[in-house]
Design a protein around this nucleic acid. Structure first.
Lengths: 248, 248
DNA sequence: CCATGGTAGTGTAAAACTTACACTAATTCC
DNA sequence: GGAATTAGTGTAAGTTTTACACTACCATGG
């Protein structure tokens, strides 16, 4: 384990951008720093990687300690290693983001978790270190992702209405969508199960509830992202004007 | 600089997947290892990051020492940090890929460079460490990228024919493209300058030569990837069936 | 100089997809 | 029962994608 003593070694951490969706708004879970540097500032949850721990495992650990959640969507985004990103020395950090259902989240007993709070992404000002930049990079990645895969479902409760789904997409993409076109599109993907239930306790016409069809999605993944609806005879031409897999 | 001595520190490196295009084939520049571990195996060029060096700078340095080239397209892809990826200890590596014009490349005097050789990607078998996996990740990223940005031009000489360009796209996307549709599409982007010259020394009808229009491309980038040709009145709907920027 | 071999270059019609747009339906609350 | 509020629905026009085959041009060799 000390083969590399002749070379410079660095501390390295993982930082986790934990996204949630609530009240029609994309949120991120931040922690108030209790120590210098950047004491009192909000920061992304992160921690040092252990010697016998894979990077992904470290990211999962950070998330688990903070939220108590396992088996959530987690993706590596980019590594930030500018020489001066940490005032006290060289620290390289691998940025991850994860998607959780806020309803599943409960404040953990751990002392770190006590200081955690959800923030609307749009209203996040400056963060400790280069964490604002990391947040932005992760949010951009999420924007990409939401058009390529049905990740939106990771952020919603198991049963949801089409309007809720649309609001989620609007929050991630930071734009407005046409209701009819959105529904047409999303239903044509055949990734939703109509539960034949409706909302309860709302002061207006209740909406139908849907559920994500994980099986269909996996079929679709297995087919290599072809997203071939119906019996289209169309060949997959990767140079289509906008030829990336897209969801919806 | 020793603020973090209480935490585990690791050696870290950058590995660079250097892509080139030649003889209708995508190539990658590999180095034959002269030392254990994996002595005699081919590996990606990489090196340890220096204490006062940003990650990107380290990747550029690796590339420069090996090829003598500067100012080439370089992009971080992902960080590989599995505990056992290096048999002699924990080494975390940040993977980059770069795109170079093979014609610009000349073997450098350095001893490393002497051992470097271009390999057809399709024919690469096993590499040292987890480098095969890194190569694959970078190639996948390139596939994405080529549909989102005109990176292809980084791989071709300044003057090229449409057929050459098409072959490049076919090599990256690992598919065949329709000649007429390809030309229609690529010309409609208005990113090519017709040089009004033709090939010389070919034993058949010589093709017209084109050049990449960097100015137009920068305009286009400034417009926020809108790719709006002509005076289309269409609003940008991010949920279009395949709504990612695409090139061509 | 003509025939051959080989690549360059070109258009169109059908299908698929995207866009724009406005009214009725169902429920609760008062 | 009327008001308020959100759910739900269809169609036509415009744009993009797809499929497809022939002529043009140049060099070479007989």
């Amino acid at each position: 384990m000390n083969e590399f003593n002749e070379y410079f070694k660095s501390a390295f951490t993982v930082d986790n951008v934990i996204f949630g969706f609530d009240e029609g708004d994309m949120k991120v879970l931040l922690i108030k720093r209790g120590e210098e540097p950047y004491k009192g500032k909000w920061a992304l949850p992160g921690y040092f990687v252990n010697p016998a721990e894979d990077l992904d495992a470290a990211a999962k650990r950070v998330l688990g300690e903070l939220t108590g959640l396992r088996n959530v969507y987690l993706e590596q985004v980019r590594t930030f290693g500018a020489v001066n990103r940490h005032p006290a020395g060289r620290v390289i950090t691998v940025a991850y983001f994860s998607l959780i259902k806020i309803s599943d989240y409960a404040i953990q007993a751990s002392s770190i978790a006590q200081k955690a709070k959800w923030h609307s992404i749009a209203r996040v000002k400056d963060l400790a270190f280069d964490h604002k930049e990391i947040l932005q990079a992760c949010f951009n990645r999420l924007k990409w992702l939401v058009r390529a895969r049905p990740v939106g479902f990771e952020l919603l409760p198991p049963k949801f209405t089409l309007t809720e789904l649309q609001h989620l997409y609007e929050a991630i993409l930071e734009t407005e969508l046409d209701k009819r076109n959105f529904r047409k599109k999303i239903l044509s993907m055949n990734l939703l199960i109509d539960l034949d239930e409706t909302q309860e306790g709302v002061a207006h016409r209740p909406a139908r509830l849907y559920q994500f069809d994980k099986e269909k999605y996996e079929e679709f993944l297995a087919e290599g992202f072809s997203f071939e609806l119906k019996e289209s005879k169309k060949k997959e031409n990767p140079l289509r004007k906008n030829a990336s897999p897209s969801f919806p």
